[in-house]
Amino acid sequence: MVEWITGVGRSTLSHLSNLGRATLILIQAITGRSNVGVHWRLTIDQVYVVGVLSLSIIIVSGLFIGMVLGLQGYTILADYGSEQALGQMVALSLTRELGPVVTALLFAGRAGSALTAEIGLMKATEQLASLEMIGVDPLRRVVAPRFWAGVISLPILSLIFVSVGCLGGALVGVSWLGVDSGSFWANMQASVEFSDDVLNGIIKSVVFAVVVTWIAVYQGYDLVPTSEGISRATTKTVVHASLAVLGLDFFLTAIMFGEI
């Protein structure tokens, strides 16, 4: 029994110290004087890597999720004779939940793991240590641009995901299943509030972006520099980031939409 309690204590302490290290890394990376010109360019480079290269997976998944929503929603709503509410259903589920959450999950798998592996490889091949020896802080040079790129890219990807999803829903609902185009869009417009739904979705997405990218760069920076360490850290990034996104989503939803 005492053993067990000691175990609980030990793991709590180690989690706390991990959290502390992660926080320190983040703070050191994003604060302090830096060469704005150079870092801006590095950030743009990283936006290309984590954002632009994730576009295809985001667009394809967005389209399919929108289409599935259209199809499923139609069959259910048709039972109640409310097919015209299809637009509302598709748009609300996308803007509020599916857009930010699914994009963040895909992002964690596509870009987050790549970030971890890249930083980890730089650590394993002593490139980070070498930067330090040259007198360049790797937190600012390597970690900060990647962090900002993630924070910029994910909300944009999320917006694209939602838009493509709505179009996918319209494609199935209006073009294939014959819901009236006017009432599809009018219903959508009547029920979706820009400030409540779209803006809240964007806020969620920004929060997820910070968390996912933070986990990814921390796992990369803090890993054991061996090939095994890199593969384990990559897995951890995806698992931790996904759990964090889903957990946080509940709290954010409760704060934004649920009057608990």
Partner: peptide, 8 residues
Amino acid sequence: FLALEVSG
């Protein structure tokens, strides 16, 4: 698009 078409 979200502002104009979806939330009107």
